[in-house]
């Protein structure tokens, strides 16, 4: 083979990182590329990054396995011997995807991308509403302070990812909606409004925490469609209410709530 042909062949191999990360190579090609990976640090690095991306696609497919599977696997484990770490690669089960690509360790301090949300988070319209709002947050990043937006977004992700996060949504006759995802253990909730438009005359929408036998407590002002993070909720909290208030907000509500949502379904007020 001529030098140029060899070069072209190698050039060709370099372009297989994405198909490899997606498991989109035929067996023979896969093996050829894995051989290449052990000598090409560029492809190895690319495959590491692209594989993390592909895995994000996997997370969103999580589904509860059949109950019988657990017992079958666990009893099989009791009688199945393990490979030891010292067994040479060739003696191991064939076709195992290599855990490590290439010879160099990834850069130190590399953050491992993890899914934003726990896979079994409550599936409701409210969840979709919150995600839609997060997208609005992302789209506005150019306008607003990036760091602040990211901090808020990751705070939201924390509430959404809490193991006891639950979601609820309410809709009025005009199709205006309030959505809440709350975690009782964190005492926090993410609240979104949609379909309400901008309040007239420089007025604002204010969120209140309602508790029996206590004054409503302000949880903050809504800024457009951006989700509002309410913290300091305790188990005595029974509902959330939204009122329209003069610019800057009020110490106590000055008007009837435009919408109210009970918190019982998301683990509060019990």
């Amino acid at each position: 083979m001529s030098f140029v042909a060899r070069l072209l062949r190698r050039e060709d191999l370099h372009s297989l990182a994405a198909p490899y990360a997606l498991d989109a190579l035929e067996r023979a090609e896969r093996r050829r590329f894995e051989t290449h990976l052990s000598t090409c640090e560029v492809c190895a690095a690319e495959v590491r990054a692209l594989t993390e991306d592909a895995v994000r696609l996997a997370w969103s497919t999580a589904a509860p396995p059949p109950a019988a599977l657990r017992e079958r696997v666990l009893s099989a484990v009791r009688t199945t011997p393990q490979e030891s770490a010292g067994v040479p690669a060739r003696a191991r089960a064939p076709q195992l995807p290599p855990h490590v690509w290439g010879n160099q360790a990834p850069p130190r301090g590399r953050s491992v991308r993890r899914p934003l949300f726990v896979p079994f988070a409550t599936a409701t319209a409210a969840a979709a509403l919150v995600v839609a709002s997060l997208f609005a947050v992302q789209a506005n990043e150019a306008r607003d302070d990036l760091a602040a937006q990211r901090a808020r977004a990751s705070e939201i992700a924390n509430v959404l990812g809490a193991p006891d996060a639950r979601a609820s949504t309410g809709e009025d006759a005009k199709g205006r909606r309030i959505g809440v995802v709350a975690s009782a253990s964190e005492g926090r909730a993410v609240v979104t409004l949609s379909g309400y438009g901008e309040p007239p005359g420089g007025r604002v929408r204010q969120l209140w925490l309602m508790r029996p036998g206590a004054q409503p407590r302000s949880l903050g002002l809504f800024d457009g469609d951006t989700p509002l993070i309410a913290s300091g909720l305790d188990t005595s909290s029974t509902s959330l209410a939204v009122t329209v208030e003069p610019g800057g907000g009020s110490p106590q509500p000055t008007s009837q709530p435009i919408v109210q949502l009970a918190l019982k379904s998301v683990g509060f007020g019990e």
Binding site: R56, L57, W59, S60, T61, A62, P115, L116, F117, V118, P119, F120, A121, A123, T124, A125, A127, A128, V130, V131, L134, L160
Partner: peptide, 8 residues
Amino acid sequence: AGLEREWV
């Protein structure tokens, strides 16, 4: 519509 699902 799970959350991660919705996001993806």
